[in-house]
Design a protein around this nucleic acid. Structure first.
Lengths: 337, 337
DNA sequence: CACGTCTCTGAAAACGTTTACGGATGGAGG
DNA sequence: CCTCCATCCGTAAACGTTTTCAGAGACGTG
């Protein structure tokens, strides 16, 4: 027990060569007697193969990286919950990277691909910088990006038509007779922030509603920021009758603020979130939210990656997930359980 | 770009030996001119050291494992959120294992320690089998167990006095005048399930309340199971006036059921959870819950592990975290925001 | 009996690092 | 001019595997 047994220890004890030991351990055809001896010695010594040595030879680590901004956000969580079992079933381990949406941090992870401690990477960058693009191009292992990426970027890509998603909610709110539809967004320099901002304007236009910049407030994608932003918005536009939030977390913050302000949801203000996380059914009132298919996106990303690990060389593929509106009591009072 | 540059490539291009390259890259003293040449070639080639080779020599992987039942449970999530940045700051990566509370799966992870792909492991076993104990004893790398473990087990250990926690809530409910205090527990063959069961009985006895087995129902530690168990309990004991749930998730399920049954919380039934996760403040009404210091436990576990990685050889240590009751509207109506 | 064929095994190289050791060089001191 | 020491660097071994290649027997066939 003092020193870890290696293939060499076993070979000596069993009176065979290390090559034979390796063959037995890898299930290659071997004479029954040899196999028996090797196996028995290996078991007796409690032998476990050294993964570093194996990786060095085989050039595979059997690890996959997953990089997202913050493991605390239930969207990413939903993805991890899909991805982890799939990878595990395929014999891969999951290495988690929480980057705080910091570009330098993310580029560090990408550099990690070169260290070869992971065979592939699933990444959700909130901002895609030139640095990202360079690393994507130079990457020495497959990458799947969840979220939009410029045309022609040489990585597999899973995206969701968030524009359509925003349109769905805005139409829903409009259909309920709401005309002063506020919008609490996340940072505009993030990919989702920018997309949702454009989509909001576009949806209003389609419906013939005027775009009023006073109705828009920007915070960050967290509950506390959402609350603050919603409070600012409410103060500026007291006659708001609906609130679209770029995120379920933001929506939770908004609900807190509205409750404290004595506004009834949905009677006075209808509130909708995005992502349709578990939180939507926990919140009170239950939150109408656009599902952006987090679980589905996670699954698709894992599939794309595993596929490419199997046989590389194909052109990059893009999978697009359809958004789906899930209405609950925060917009449709009557549906309250 | 075709073939990954190695230390040998650099050596050739710079006209020095691989030893010199290694020295430069590791910051060992070298003549300025040599250093300049090596660095410039390395940069030009986009050299990145191969982690497998490095691990093989150095016998360290710079990875730490974290094994829990289900990444979806916010308790574990709170821990990961503490642990991940601490490990990262210390130069370690996090390898995530979701074991579905399956003993065989957990033992697999423990076996992984022998593969040396992780330098240490933080584990939260829901059940501690003989298999676990054997692996703990034979482990070739440091382990920190979060949760109780038999006296004398040779691992560092972070625990929480859940007995005291249960006592706190039961006293709180009793102090509010509740006398028919139901208990929805998780599986009794899990470490927390067993502990909470014993603690519930004990707390009742301390308060001079009779133990009525009709008041106890067992499900699993999830929302849906909690709902089902609470429904059974409610049907059996309609005059229940308080409900202690072994878990915030269970409590959410219970809230759903009570709402659907038309019981007011807390007027008719006071509800309390355990773990004090984020969900407690999202639920409606906000949930009274016993904090079992998830974040604190995560931090302590990471500290213990990093400490032991620094210098091994000390006796195993145990850190105990104090529970803390956080009262909210689900038991104290008047505090409703 | 010579030969070819087949099955099993061992020797050795290779993966990409780190590091112990000793050789070369140059300057200081006698 | 010789010796000594310090400084810098190259050679080679080692980490624990996998895999290629070829040798050794066994056996059947002509």
């Amino acid at each position: 027990m003092s020193d870890e047994p290696t293939i060499t220890t076993i070979a000596r004890r069993a009176g065979v060569s290390i090559a034979s030991v390796s063959r037995v351990l890898n299930g290659l055809p071997t004479r029954a007697e040899t196999e028996r001896r090797v196996m028995s010695v290996a078991r007796e010594l409690g032998y476990v193969p050294n993964s570093a040595a194996r990786s060095l030879k085989s050039r595979r680590s059997n690890q996959i990286g997953f990089a997202m901004a913050d493991i605390g956000n239930p969207v990413y969580l939903a993805m991890v919950r899909e991805i982890q079992p799939m990878l595990k079933a395929a014999g891969y381990r999951l290495v988690l990277h929480s980057t705080n949406a910091d570009a330098a941090d993310e580029i560090d992870v990408l550099r990690g691909l070169g260290e070869r401690y992971i065979d592939g990477l699933i990444m959700i960058p909130l901002r895609v910088t030139d640095g990202h693009l360079e690393m994507f191009a130079a990457a020495r292992a497959p990458i799947v990006v969840i979220g939009s990426v410029p045309e022609g970027t040489p990585v597999d890509n899973v995206r969701v038509d968030s524009r359509a998603g925003v349109r769905l909610v805005v139409q829903h709110l409009h259909g309920l007779g709401r005309r002063r539809i506020g919008f609490v967004n996340g940072p505009l320099d993030t990919v989702p922030g920018a997309a949702r901002s454009a989509a909001y304007a576009e949806a209003l236009e389609t419906l013939g509603l005027p775009y009023d910049r006073n109705l828009v407030e920007v915070g960050d994608f967290y509950r506390a920021d959402g609350a603050r932003a919603a409070a600012r918005l409410l103060e500026r536009v007291p006659d708001l009758d609906a609130l679209l939030c770029a995120n379920d977390l933001i929506a939770l913050g908004a609900l807190d603020v509205l409750r404290r302000a004595g506004r009834r949801v949905p009677e006075d203000v209808a509130v909708a979130g995005m992502d349709d996380t578990d939180l939507a059914t926990i919140a009170w009132p239950p939150l109408t939210s656009v599902s952006l298919g987090s679980a589905e996106r996670g699954r698709a990303a894992a599939e794309l990656l595993l596929d490419r690990l199997d046989r590389d060389g194909r052109a990059p593929r893009t999978v697009t997930v359809e958004p789906r509106l899930v209405t609950r009591a925060s917009t449709m009072g009557e549906e309250t359980p």
